[in-house]
Write a protein that binds this DNA or RNA. Structure first.
Lengths: 368, 368
DNA sequence: CTGAAAGCGCTTACAG
DNA sequence: CTGAAAGCGCTTACAG
């Protein structure tokens, strides 16, 4: 390993002050006690007011609120956590390779959860886990320390992790993934795929291919179902529909390129392709261009996800928009619901978990 | 707004158990008290052992450790935070538009900090701020609550935020950005650009262009310097060197496309282009292909960053690799150093802030 | 080297 | 509607 010292650049200008600046006021940060004194009430009352709990007369409430405002009082998270037996944190787990992906899908989801967490006065502890998850070894610290009130799991993860999370004692909500009976916030993959396929059919296409990598993921599986349903409804016969699908591997640009070659290698090329996601669609378009085929005249292409590149591509890609932020928000709200539910022990008798489904939107651009 | 209820999918199978499973053992989580009882010592001693502080005889140390292991004791973060006046958290701030970028630069940096945070028993609170930062309005919650021991700021952010962070009373380390005298962990942009340019010159090129968007960012500025230095050292005359630079706008693919058109519009096209980053380089390559120019025969291209796409591009892009994880790690270590330093009040007399520089590596592929 | 005690800043029954 | 008191689970001087 290396030492930090190895990298210190001594050529930095030295005529400088330090970065640590005092907070200006010498008085230390106020506590609930200071607020109580200022308002002339007990700390119990202050606590009730800032938590909006119990019965407090309007008059004292206002007096407390004014005192808090005047002193610039902000409760310390740790001091609240200790007696209340809650942490004020939620965990956000995603596989590292997913998080690193070029398409900013999970960063969008994360930002949505962060936004909603801010509204709910929660901190989000973002942790990545490896694809090959080994329980004791890779267990997120917040699980070991039981330092969260709930857990969000984004995307596909190892079942071993889900088992661990499920037995942690706090609610778990999956995002864009499904597993057993765990509650989940998912995209309307089937509906989106159906709309996209329907759109191709409406444009007059009758020979259509589905192109995509491994369909093992529940979301991709649902997209295939939506595609099939639309084909069936339109009365297409099986020989009008092709499935260009890899038996393994991610549905990424590289896999898409391989599949596109297979697609165009066939004698009778379909007039339209529903691609399982944008990465695949972009690969198909590039391969088509390489062969001198015109999009959409020779082959129409529709994707799924509406990644940033979709809009900028030449030609701009018709696709299904997924509002990733919104998905994260939705999941966080759902999790908070479950957390509150589990606190008011009333609803113990195992309410069934739900899937919450986020609608999608077909965005018609230049490839169809 | 909408309600969560609007999205509940009632078609989910209902023959299921709830996701909330008890932890198995009915006994509640052990505290330091339980460990003390088990080991037959006081809680003070247990505290000393688990924090590796003060003098404890080897014998009692072992007895305590065994007791802790046996009971599966894990200290609660909140309980430590309260009396110790530390939070165990560090803030990680990045602009939302940067975090959403297609190139996973900042996610890589984040993962590096997370990795190192795990080693140091710290939690990272990732927060995004808008480009147009308004102090009171967008202030991260961890600042309001003073809920961090230190702050990492990744990439360019509004000066108003840096001012707020600097006066928060905790150390701040910038990542891939520089500002006044704040400590920073930066990439060796100048060195990387110098090596890349030198490489072009070594390949025999004498007419070279620098291509990139707005050079306002310190990192890009440093790259330009490295480029210029290499040109100067090689004795290139000013008329052999072109600067195709936008006066504003990000150095992204779209801007790169515009610049590439300008580059190729000139009568005398250079034989090589040093692009300020990979996004720009990829745009140049695509534009060259559109004009029937061969890369690298008609024009050699080198980028900077080594984004995932660089390797997969046809032809694969020669570029300068930046180990984003490593950068994050480095910054986190630096921050922890500063935090510890600020705790042991000895080093008060304003030590000068440093820049810690991460080396880069030239990756030669097929475009040069 | 070890323990008793005070205290961190809150919440939460429990009285009144 | 309000307050006194106990307690959350640790850390940290301070004695010894």
């Amino acid at each position: 390993m290396f030492s930090i010292r190895d990298y210190v650049d001594r050529n930095v200008s030295r005529n400088s002050t330090t970065s640590r600046v005092s907070t200006g006021s010498t008085t230390k940060r106020p506590t609930i006690k200071d607020v109580a004194a200022q308002a002339g009430v007990s700390i119990s009352t202050v606590s009730l007011v800032i938590n909006d709990k119990g019965y407090v007369s309007d008059q004292t409430r206002e007096r407390v609120q004014e005192a808090a405002r005047k002193l610039n009082f902000v409760p310390r998270p740790a001091a609240r956590a200790l007696p209340s037996k809650t942490t004020g944190n939620v965990g956000f787990v995603v596989r590292d390779d997913h998080f690193r992906r070029t398409e900013p899908f999970y960063t969008g989801v994360y930002l949505g959860t962060e936004f909603e967490a801010n509204n709910r006065e929660l901190y989000v502890l973002l942790t990545t886990i490896p694809t090959e998850y080994v329980p004791g070894k890779h267990t997120p610290r917040f699980l070991r320390e039981q330092n969260v009130d709930g857990i969000l799991v984004a995307g596909k993860v190892a079942p071993a992790f889900l088992a661990e999370a499920s037995t942690s004692g706090v609610p778990v909500v999956l995002i864009d993934f499904e597993h057993d009976t765990l509650p989940a916030a998912v995209i309307d993959n089937r509906g989106g795929a159906h709309a996209a396929t329907r759109h191709l059919i409406d444009r007059g296409h009758r020979h259509i291919a589905l192109v995509g990598g491994d369909m093992d993921h529940p979301s991709l599986h649902a997209r295939r179902e939506g595609f099939q349903l639309a084909c069936f409804e339109a009365g297409l016969s099986p020989d009008q529909v092709q499935f260009i699908v890899a038996s393994e591997g991610e549905s990424d640009y590289a896999t898409g390129t391989v599949l596109a070659k297979r697609l165009f290698a066939n004698g009778a090329v379909p007039t339209a392709a529903f691609c399982i996601n944008d990465a695949t669609a972009l690969a198909v378009i590039d391969q088509a261009a390489g062969l001198g085929l015109k999009v959409p005249d020779d082959i129409a292409v529709v994707g799924f996800d509406d990644v940033p590149q979709a809009k900028h591509n030449q030609p701009a890609l018709t696709t299904v928009r997924v509002q990733t932020d919104h998905l994260g928000e939705l999941a966080m709200r759902y999790l908070v619901d479950l957390i509150e539910e589990s606190r008011s022990r009333k609803v113990r008798p195992g309410r069934d978990p739900h899937r919450i489904t986020l609608p999608t939107e077909l965005v018609i651009r230049d490839t169809t």
